[in-house]
Design a binder for these strands. Structure first.
Lengths: 188, 188
DNA sequence: TTGACAAGGCTAACGCTGTTAGCTACCCTG
DNA sequence: CAGGGTAGCTAACAGCGTTAGCCTTGTCAA
């Protein structure tokens, strides 16, 4: 638990100082210029290095992406845990959804990277994904409700990021509709 | 409406006979060998053709993917319209969700292609996306409920396809939890 | 002081990707 | 029989992730 009022994330994978710099540069590149800009050669340019030298710090691009995803999950999990820990009684679900949406929309490219297909989940720090998803269980108190609420939040975010809703949609109301659905359906 | 009991899809883009063959081959390749196998050269091999010759039929890979996505949306929309049209009173939402899940899991790679980021939506046949999403409005009777239900279904499918749920999850129950949440929250 | 070794950079190159340019052969129409 | 469209071809380009092999620098022990 600790003084922050919610459980600490599992220990992150250790990284050399230079590896930390590489991840930071990769993240800036991804967030500012989009996923197609995250290229070993362009990342090398940012670092003042040739692309093959990056392989001195990470065995390949997937490993580098995994490091970025670990950071992203820690930050997202922290935001979600804080949201439910600080919510008034009965307000956990709406508070969680607001935090989820805000965090994802604030880091759209990182969110897409972390939730995209084809990532080597078995190489991720043990328990990190579970810890990041725990707030959904804390807010609903029931595992299937938690999974369903998570699916709703994730679906909303990806559809919103991809501009898949009708142009004049009032998405605040759609999020509210989902929140109230899961609140009224919550077990006693 | 017509005799099928639900509105017909908007007219599809016209394709030359050879273009139809190209799309069919591309679809078989994608469904059987996954997205990384859908390559212009490999597609050419399947067709007994060199990769540059494909450009006689489609201006580029995105246009070819768009054609595949149009087919996918027509099929998905047909399945969803049929599900709500044939559902007993009050059973529209569960019936819709069952059809959505079944269709997506039956064509996982095509579903991912159609719902992935970065597709040129403005080039798609007018009204096709709206028509395919219409069953969600028909099942809920309210636009924000419809969007929220769609987000839940899409989120469930992508999380299920990506194996992001805990290994021993009973996903039938999770789908049921979402269905009942939206049913009990539905307006009078 | 010197030798060994690791860390971290480099160039050259490979096989893959989507794509373009330019050529050629066939077929249908006038 | 000429012209034009259709549909194939080869060669090539730039960019991708990645590997092999080399070299310099710094540290640390003998």
């Amino acid at each position: 638990m600790s003084s922050r009022g919610f459980p600490a994330p599992p220990p992150a994978t250790v990284r050399s100082p230079r590896a930390v710099q590489v991840v930071e540069a990769a993240r800036r590149l991804l967030e500012s210029d989009g996923p197609e800009a995250l290229t070993m050669r362009r990342l090398g340019d940012v670092l003042g290095i040739r692309a093959p030298s990056i392989y001195k710090h990470f065995p390949g691009k997937p490993a580098l992406e995994l490091a970025m995803i670990e950071d992203a999950l820690i930050e997202l999990g922290t935001a979600l845990h804080r949201a439910v820990a600080g919510a008034a009684r009965g307000e956990a679900v709406p508070s969680l959804l607001v935090a989820y949406r805000a965090h994802a929309l604030a880091h759209p490219n990182l969110y897409r990277l972390a939730t995209g297909a084809g990532l080597a989940r078995q190489d991720m720090a043990d328990g990190l994904e579970d810890w990041a998803g725990e707030p959904f269980y804390l807010a609903t108190g029931e595992p299937h409700q938690a999974q369903a609420l998570w699916a709703f939040a994730h679906g909303m975010v990806v559809l919103e990021l991809d501009d898949r809703f009708l142009p004049d949609s009032d998405l605040d109301r759609t999020w509210a509709a989902g929140a109230s659905a899961f609140v009224t359906a919550a077990p006693a």
